[in-house]
């Protein structure tokens, strides 16, 4: 069974690579953060005696908090809605017939068919992807200079800067988004300030628009972009830019040909960390967005709460997962292939 073992080994390597793509930059961001370093040292000393013990927790985590719920949601997506507790039919049933037991599996595909037939879902998926893509680009544009400044700050400040970046997490996410309502509304702080400055005469309508949604998303997800970027940029040797300049390359061009490619792992990790959750974001569009902000998260919410249709909600969630996972897997394949080629 050497073949099986080899495949397993490859799968494991792929998983590890996949995890490290996102985890590594975060890891190094955390490493720069003194309390976490202390914690890691303690963990190192205690736990990492056996290899098994070291790798078991992430796998157990994945199994309990990802695969098991995934299986349940997948099952519900093939059920039918029902007025019952819980409000859907059973997919698997044990049937007794003349003393023999049969496992009956009833799969209902109409939930998925509905998603194809009604273009509402397609448009919601596309719009969510669009909003996520624009938000990710904006977060990158805002986050890059911040991360760059952090990475170039004197070493003794960096821990404090990382800390400040994480600080907002000490307050509830919901409260922070609510605070934006106060800032952005017509009689809010921003309009008041602009009117006081005399820049505008009439208040600008920002709240309840897509623009407000982008502000809220970029604000909320900025740390997820900045930290991996910071980790990547902090590792970068400053003498590389001097070398580029020395070889006749102007600073602006050096930024694009040296800094950006070297920050690529951070850019990719940060973009994934922003893009993926934003696609399914519900709270920010609900609080800051207008009623025409069509997002899949809201639709899913409506299926679950308004329609009480857990099966369709599950199907929507499954498709969302596929939409997110497939590109990541393809990207991983591509990366792995490139690394293979480079070797």
């Amino acid at each position: 069974m050497t073949f099986g073992a080899a495949t397993r080994e490859a799968t494991r390597a792929r998983w590890a690579a996949r995890a490290s793509l996102i985890l590594k930059p975060l890891q190094s961001a955390l490493d720069a953060f003194p309390p976490s370093r202390w914690l890691m040292r303690r963990l190192d000393r205690r736990a990492l005696k056996g290899r098994l013990l070291a790798i078991a927790p992430p796998y157990a985590w994945l199994l309990i908090f990802f695969l098991a719920p995934f299986a349940i949601v997948l099952k519900i997506s093939f059920a039918e809605p029902d007025v019952a507790m819980p409000p859907y039919t059973e997919v698997f049933a044990l049937i007794e017939d003349a003393g023999s037991f049969f496992l009956s599996i009833k799969l209902n595909f109409s939930n998925y068919l509905l998603l194809i037939e009604d273009d509402l879902y397609l448009r919601a998926y596309l719009n969510s992807l669009k909003i996520a893509a624009i938000s990710t680009a904006l977060a990158l544009m805002v986050g890059f200079p911040i991360a760059y400044a952090m990475a170039r700050a004197p070493r003794r400040w960096r821990g404090a800067l990382v800390m400040m970046m994480i600080l907002p997490f000490w307050t509830s996410f919901l409260i922070r988004v609510y605070a934006w309502i106060g800032i952005l509304k017509n009689e809010g702080l921003l309009n008041g300030f602009l009117q006081w400055l005399g820049v505008i005469g009439e208040p600008l309508t920002i709240l309840n628009t897509d623009f407000a949604v982008y502000i809220g998303i970029v604000y909320s997800y900025l740390p997820f972009m900045v930290l991996p970027l910071y980790a990547a940029l902090e590792r970068m040797d400053e003498s590389l830019l001097e070398a580029a300049s020395d070889l006749g390359c102007r600073p602006v061009k050096a930024f694009w040909v040296i800094t950006v490619p070297l920050a690529a792992p951070g850019i990719i990790a940060g973009s994934f960390l922003v893009f993926i959750p934003v696609v399914g974001e519900v709270v920010i569009p609900d609080l800051l967005g207008g009623s025409d902000t069509l997002m899949i998260g809201r639709l899913l919410w409506a299926e679950f709460f308004s329609n009480h249709d857990w099966p369709v909600a599950s199907a929507v969630a499954m498709i969302l997962l596929l939409i997110l996972v497939i590109p990541i897997v393809l990207f991983q394949r591509h990366q792995a292939a490139r690394q293979e080629a480079a070797r």
Partner: peptide, 13 residues
């Protein structure tokens, strides 16, 4: 003028 850096500063990518 060109410089050879102590760290070599080769572009890793």
């Amino acid at each position: 003028v060109n410089m050879m850096f102590q760290s070599y500063a080769l572009f890793p990518h």
